[in-house]
Design a binder for these strands. Structure first.
Length: 207
DNA sequence: CACCAGGAATGTA
DNA sequence: TACATTCATGGT
């Protein structure tokens, strides 16, 4: 188990339970509507701060766009007009549409897609244009409760600082976390959230 | 006014 | 494989 679990415990002691976006993302259990909101957020938050994502999600809610099916029926151009605050709105509207199109046309609903085996679900998500490793894993972990560890810049920075791994790339780092922690999606959800919260904290002289 | 934020696709060498 | 560029709003 090396000391990854210890790092998690230190972070939890320092920051407590995840807040803000993480109130929803780390909630257990989630309703289907909440899972679908996580999926929308996963695309919208690409290279964008969460505040801007919230503005976009609010625009969607004001228009009663709350389900993946609503997104699917709305169409790319109207999606774009509502998600402008999240930035990159033209391309994100297309990405979001690609994703909901994939789910609805192949599985009819998110409930059905949720039943798909982790390995297969990950491979198929990665084929959707606009869904890369981090977005795919965020969806699997936070919307579908699958035990995959999400790697982002904050995670890389943390491991780099602590010099726990010499070769830093997405797949190797993900393997490192998953091999040195018990296979528990609850732990993965909270741990990743805490890493991000910690990474955004400027005065991070802990441990 | 300059810089950056939970990325991913595309093009170049 | 490894970088560079593009996409774009809102906060500091």
């Amino acid at each position: 188990m090396i000391n990854l679990k210890k790092i998690y415990q230190e972070l939890e002691k320092k920051y407590g339970k995840p807040n803000e976006q993480w109130n929803l993302w780390c909630k257990r259990p989630k309703t289907i509507q909440e899972r679908e909101e996580v999926i929308m957020g996963a695309i919208l938050t690409q290279r964008t701060n969460w505040k801007n994502v919230e503005l976009s999600l609010k625009n969607l809610k004001n228009k009663k766009i709350i389900s993946l099916k609503d997104i699917y029926c709305l169409g790319v151009q109207k999606i774009a007009s509502l998600i402008k605050p999240a930035g990159f709105y033209e391309i994100k509207a297309q990405y979001l549409f690609n994703l909901v199109q994939f789910v609805i046309e192949n599985y009819a609903s998110l409930e059905k897609f949720k039943d798909v085996d982790l390995k297969e679900a990950r491979e198929k998500l990665l084929k959707v244009k606009g869904v890369g490793p981090e977005t795919a894993d965020s969806i699997l972990l936070y919307a579908l409760d699958k035990p995959v560890f999400v790697i982002d810049e904050y995670t890389k920075r943390l491991i780099r600082e602590k010099k726990m791994v010499n070769k830093i790339n997405y797949n190797l780092l993900q393997k490192f976390f998953e091999e040195n922690l018990e296979k528990d999606f609850c732990l993965y959800q909270d741990f990743h959230a805490l890493i991000v919260i910690h990474g955004k904290n400027k005065n991070f002289n802990i441990f």
